[in-house]
Nucleic acid binder design. Structure first.
Lengths: 226, 226
DNA sequence: TTCATGGTTCGACCGTAGCCGAAACATCGA
DNA sequence: TCGATGTTTCGGCTACGGTCGAACCATGAA
């Protein structure tokens, strides 16, 4: 017998990947909206809404309404504290990641993140650009001249994109891969181009499916680093 | 996107009620066997074995083999630390116990704990004995003279039990009720007597089912305290 | 060796809870 | 007032993972 109080319920609440992502996204103390958290969690908005309701009801989150937005933040430092300890423990106990990111294998290899490519393919793309000196890795990555030429060869007009008011390059920590992929105007343009080239197409949900030929071409254009 | 590392997996590991009970049972630093932990978790031995395997693989538990027993303990203070923080958080965020103890309602009201009565009925029995001064509540409770007479009236020979080498009275923190119930030689004898009297019978698994008449008699003998 | 006991593995079953699309609801801007 | 945007609710589907009994190993005792 014996019983630890609602500890199981509490841990279970954190134990869902989507909810864990939501909590981690709030770890820096910012307040985010439901929609933003849905993206952070990698789920649809309704799903995230449900998770947020549970977290709120459990007293993990504080809500602030402002206009038609709803801003959510961690309810206190003790919540952040537990998360951090869990991270520490997760680190100590080792590399064993049971199940992070989406369950759907298709989502793990290539999916939509906002409007750009995420998942294993997205990480591969970014990594490949960096390794070959086409993009300088930084919080706000920049495209080198070599890179601009290379991308032009693929039909992406970096100069034009740079003139827009949207940041050209951003990197985004990939949910399932835990490494960066390419975001920003260039990230979006790259995905459009991949689709235009017929290498990949968007499917239902957030899945991006490569064609067999497209997969080969993609691997040639953005060879995976060893 | 963004991702908290294996934090979700780690939390999910603690988030299962059975596993949480196992961890809590080990919180005092003792090393327990698989069978003992199965009882602590309130599950069958195979189930507990599976959970223990997962916890071990995750690095939460340390194993020590001795004879044909396998002793398990927490692998380090950081594990206990996380559990304690979770307890604190669970406490702060309030009374909301989502789901502790067994799912089966029958198990919650009356069940077997080793060889004595647990669940709501077990708690009621112990509480009733204490409230009426038949048992002195303590880590090792004792039966008063009034209590011995009262129990004799029910057909339980306290004096005989006291001569055995098994501790007469122990209390056991009830898993689902989070209050004590009666264990020890007297606890076992009480259950035997309840069955002999035809008030209750053991069913499959750990369920103890009261007969309608037995339920009434039980409520008269051990009236629930207000 | 044979028996008993502690533990693990297997297979099958079941329930919970996560997931999403569609639709409803709410709030603001025009 | 109407439409657009942000959020919640609902319904139905799916699948992961917990659960147990039975059978199977391993160790120690007789």
């Amino acid at each position: 017998m014996k019983d630890g109080p609602s500890i199981a319920a509490t841990a279970a609440l954190i134990g869902d990947p989507a909810r864990a992502n939501i909590l981690v996204a709030l770890m820096d103390g910012r307040a985010l909206t439901v929609t933003e958290l849905a993206h952070a969690a990698g789920t649809s908005i309704p799903t995230a809404s449900g998770h947020i309701a549970k977290l709120s009801e459990a007293g993990f989150l504080a809500t602030r309404r402002q206009g038609r937005h709803r801003y959510l933040s961690l309810s206190g430092p003790d919540v952040a504290d537990v998360i951090e300890r869990l991270m520490g423990l997760a680190g100590r106990t080792g590399a064993r990641r049971m199940r992070t990111g989406p369950r759907d294998p298709a989502l793990r290899t290539a999916r939509l993140c906002y409007d750009h490519l995420a998942g294993a393919s997205g990480v591969q793309l970014y990594r490949s650009l960096v390794v070959r000196g086409f993009v300088a890795d930084a919080a706000h990555p920049s495209v080198t001249e070599d890179g601009a030429r290379f991308l032009a060869g693929l039909g992406v007009d970096v100069g034009g994109l740079a003139r827009g008011r949207r940041p050209l390059c951003l990197r985004c920590l990939d949910w399932s891969e835990r490494r960066h992929h390419l975001a920003g105007a260039l990230g979006a343009a790259m995905l459009v181009r991949l689709v235009d080239l017929g290498w990949a197409r968007r499917e239902d949900g957030r899945v991006i499916r490569f064609t067999p030929a497209g997969e080969t071409a993609f691997a040639r254009a953005f060879p995976p680093s060893p």
